[in-house]
C-alpha cells in the first residue's frame, strides 16, 4: 500500500473536520476523494502530507509513519496545494530549481530536472518569466511540475483544477492523464464528479468528514441501482402498448418521456432485462430507434448518497 490510514480524526475546536477515516491506496493507483466544500478533503490531505497531525489515528505513506518519520515521508511525496503555491516573484525555472535544491538534488541535477519538467509541462517559453505573470493554467502546470521535481512515489493533488476555466481545465486534465499513465500513485481531491470519473480508478465519496461510499465510478453507480432502460419509439402512437409491455418485462414502473418519445424504466436486471424488453417489443411489432441500458450519472449518485447535490456545493464561494 502506498498510503494506509486508520481511524483518522481531526478536530478544530468544536468542529470535527475529519471524523474517523480509514484509507488504503494501492501503489500505482489513482484515487479521487470526492466531496463538496467543507467535507474535510483538504484536512485529510494535510494530515497525509505531514502538514497537520491527526488527533487520533495512524498514517503510513510510502512505507513511513507520517508522525514519527515526517522527513522520510517528505522525501517521497509531492504535494500541490489548492491554490498553486508557486513563488510569484521567481521565474518558472527558478521555482523548480529551488524545489530541487530543497530536495537536496544538488544544483546541477536540480537544473537538469527543471529543464526536463519545463519541457514536459509546455512551459519552455515562459521559463524565464516571473510566475506573477503566468495565467492560472500555467501556474497550475508549474505547480504540478514542482511536485514532480524529486520523482515522488506518491503525489497529493488538492483540487488541481478548481478555479480554472473549462479550457484550462481540459488542458490540465491532459497533463494529469500523462501523470496517471506514468504509474505514480496519486491521491487527488475534487469537487467535480467528471474529474473523479475521468482520472481515478477508485473514488472515495466524503461528506462531513466521513467516507460515505467508495469504489470505481461504475461500482458507485451500480450501488444505488441507478441503471435505466430507455427505449426511443419510432411511432409514438404505440406508447401505451410499449409502457405496458416494458413494465411487465422488467417488473418495474415504466414512464413515458414525451419530449424524447422514450419509455424509461429503472431496473437492476442488467442485460437480461434489456433482452426481455427487446423480445417483448419485437413480438408486439413495436419498432424502436434506440434501446439502451444507461448508468446513473455520478451526480445522481452523489445526490442519493449525501442528500444534497455536489453541484450545489460547487456554487459556494471557496
Amino acid at each position: 500500500m502506498a498510503i494506509e490510514a486508520t481511524g483518522l480524526v481531526k478536530r478544530f475546536g468544536d468542529m470535527t473536520a475529519v471524523a474517523g477515516v480509514d484509507l488504503a491506496v494501492k501503489a500505482g493507483s489513482v484515487t479521487a476523494v470526492l466531496g463538496p466544500n467543507g467535507a474535510g478533503k483538504t484536512t485529510m490531505v494535510r494530515m497525509l502530507t505531514t502538514l497537520s497531525q491527526p488527533d487520533t489515528g495512524t498514517i503510513t505513506v510510502a512505507g513511513f509513519d507520517v508522525v514519527a518519520d515526517p522527513t522520510e515521508v517528505r522525501r517521497r511525496i509531492g504535494y500541490a496545494a489548492q491554490d498553486a503555491t508557486v513563488d510569484e516573484l521567481l521565474t518558472g525555472r527558478e521555482n523548480l530549481i529551488m524545489i530541487g535544491e530543497l530536495h537536496h538534488l544538488g544544483r546541477v541535477r536540480a537544473k537538469e530536472r527543471a529543464a526536463v519538467l519545463l519541457t514536459q509541462f509546455s512551459l519552455d517559453d515562459a521559463a524565464e518569466r516571473v510566475v506573477g505573470k503566468y495565467s492560472g493554467g500555467m501556474r497550475r502546470r508549474l505547480d504540478l511540475a514542482a511536485t514532480l521535481v524529486a520523482t515522488p512515489e506518491v503525489l497529493f493533488l488538492d483540487e488541481p483544477t478548481t478555479g480554472l476555466d473549462p479550457r484550462a481545465r481540459n488542458e490540465l486534465w491532459e497533463v494529469l492523464d500523462t501523470l496517471v499513465d506514468s504509474g505514480v500513485t496519486i491521491l487527488l481531491t475534487t469537487q467535480y464528479l467528471e474529474e473523479a470519473e475521468r482520472l481515478a480508478d477508485h473514488i472515495l465519496v466524503v461528506d462531513h468528514g466521513r467516507i460515505i461510499a467508495s469504489g470505481s465510478a461504475r461500482e458507485l453507480k451500480r450501488r444505488i441501482g441507478g441503471e435505466q432502460i430507455r427505449a426511443v419509439l419510432r411511432d409514438r402512437s404505440r406508447a401505451d402498448d410499449a409502457l405496458r409491455l416494458i413494465s411487465e418485462a422488467t417488473g418495474g414502473e415504466a414512464a413515458f418521456d414525451a419530449d424524447a418519445d422514450a419509455v424509461v424504466v429503472a431496473t437492476a436486471g442488467g442485460a437480461a432485462a434489456v433482452a426481455a424488453v427487446a423480445g417483448a417489443l419485437a413480438e408486439a411489432g413495436i419498432e424502436v430507434d434506440e434501446l439502451a441500458l444507461r448508468a446513473a450519472t455520478l451526480d445522481e449518485v452523489f445526490l442519493e448518497l449525501t442528500g444534497h447535490s455536489a453541484d450545489a456545493a460547487i456554487e459556494e464561494p471557496v
Binding site: 505531514t50 502538514l51 511525496i77 491554490d83 530543497l102 530536495h103 537536496h104
Partner: peptide, 13 residues
Amino acid sequence: STGAIDRFRTLPI
C-alpha cells in the same frame, strides 16, 4: 498567506 510556507513544510528540509 500564499501557502509558500506549507510548500516548504512538505519538503524534506
